[in-house]
Amino acid sequence: MTSIGTGYDLSNSVFSPDGRNFQVEYATKAVENGGTSIGLRCKDGVVLAVEKLIQSKLLVPGSNKRIATVDRHVGIAASGLIPDARHFTSRARNEASSWRKQYHGAIPVSSLADRMGQYTQAYTLYSSVRPFGVTCIIGGVDEEAGPSLWMVEPSGVGWGYFGAATGRGRQAAKAELEKLDLPNLTVEEGVKHAARIIHIAHGDNAGKDKDFELEMTWVRVDKANVVEVTESGVVKGHGRHEEVPKELVEEAEREAKKALEVEDEEDEKMEES
């Protein structure tokens, strides 16, 4: 059944006869036009990466950050309408802050994702608001679960992931993420894969002629703040969300570009034979 012209897609909170909420689906369209975001849950931390498309060379390089810190131990990467992503992170910061006031401790990432899912879902319930035009990847490390990664969609649905991808290059990114043995990777290895995946996702879609900046952050536990290391090497403790050091990003990007060139050459050989 098509949505357009039926009238069922003109207002939020309205079901169509076959049980769909079109405004939420349209919000998802806004996400699918946005730059790719990915998250990797490794055994000792989480990596977040975004493809930040550069609209104008007049923009200040390295400014206009797309990955936000929510609390010491949590970061959010988002694809879609950027102002909506700012609203989303602002709410997440309030949740994290009020958790600290109530419980005198850092909010578990799963609880934060759960609350943000509820908040997002509330914006699908009323005709007086519109859904969020963003899908957000929430990554962090906490005491109870160790590294954890969640993705909240405009519908309010939120799942936990080992590898999450959203935005215009999500399909290519997902295909690459599935090839990885994420539960056994370290964040250092994760950073290299993340850089490579963003480069692949960028080359795979319509905006590939545009310039982009790779923005990467990670959440890791300082040695002094480790609470427990499980048998499988999962690190639990007080994580810290911060930018991946510049040298590491540059190295990862160099390797990513090299890997892509090799792949291209192989493709050409395949075509020749």
């Binding site: 810190t69 609390d71 010491r72 802050s97 600290r100 005198h104 930018e243």
Partner: peptide
């Protein structure tokens, strides 16, 4: 120390 200043510092840090 544990509530007011901690909140202040976290809010300052996440501005980045």
């Amino acid at each position: 120390f544990d509530t007011a200043l901690e909140d202040l510092v976290i809010k300052e840090e996440y501005q980045n």
